[in-house]
Simulated scan of single mutants.
Amino acid sequence: MLVCHCNLITEKEIEEAIIDLLEADPWQLIVPAKVYHSLQKRGRCCGCFPNVVETIIRVTEHYHLRSDASEVDIVSHMDRVRELRVQYGSRNHERRNAGHRAA
């Protein structure tokens, strides 16, 4: 599935970039800009960033569930990520309605 129409980036490419970042440091905070930088791209309209955030959360959860990390560490890390998403949510900053997003 095509996630970023501006840069022609697929969901699979984003997932692979996230996994590569997690392999380097499993507990780093991954944000869309870091994913795009690893793909040697940059956000243009940034309308895809909410979907990229959802992909980051999903892939990170699956990565840590397959790892040897304790479940307590995984839950606390993902809860912090979700709290940041709620605190700095994309609706107010995106300047568009959320109806066009898949996530």
Rank of each mutant, 00 (worst) to 15 (best):
V3T: 02
D25Q: 12
L2K: 15
R96Y: 11
S76R: 10
V86N: 06
I9G: 00
A24H: 07
N7H: 04
P50N: 08
I56H: 04
A69R: 10
A24R: 07
V86Q: 10
S76T: 09
F49P: 00
R82C: 04
H62K: 13
R101K: 14
V53D: 05
E16S: 04
S70L: 07
P50V: 09
C46F: 12
L29Q: 08
A69G: 05
R58C: 01
E71Y: 06
P32Q: 05
R82K: 05
F49S: 01
I14D: 04
S70C: 13
L2M: 13
K12T: 06
L22D: 06
L65V: 13
R96I: 14
D79G: 00
L2Y: 12
Y63M: 06
T10I: 00
H100Q: 02
C4M: 06
H5N: 15
A17F: 00
L8F: 09
L21F: 01
V81T: 07
E11I: 03
R95I: 04
K41N: 14
H77G: 05
R42W: 01
H77I: 04
E83D: 11
V81Q: 11
P50H: 12
V52T: 15
E54N: 13
A102T: 12
R96V: 15
G47L: 06
G99Y: 12
K34H: 10
D79A: 03
L2H: 08
P26R: 11
P50D: 10
I14E: 02
P32E: 09
C46E: 09
R91W: 04
P32H: 07
V53L: 06
G99I: 03
K41C: 08
S70M: 14
I30H: 01
E83F: 02
P26S: 10
V81E: 08
T60K: 04
E16R: 12
E13H: 02
V59Q: 03
Y63A: 04
I56G: 00
C48V: 06
C46L: 03
L84Y: 11
R101P: 00
L21A: 04
T60E: 05
D25E: 13
L8A: 12
I9T: 10
V53R: 14
C46S: 10
L2E: 12
G99W: 09
S70Q: 08
G43S: 14
S90A: 11
R91G: 05
L22E: 12
L22F: 06
L39M: 05
H64P: 02
R82Y: 11
T60W: 00
L2I: 15
Y63S: 01
M78G: 06
N7L: 06
C46K: 13
K41S: 02
Y63P: 01
R91Y: 09
R85L: 02
V72P: 00
V75F: 05
C6N: 09
D79E: 12
C48Y: 14
V86E: 13
E11T: 09
V31N: 05
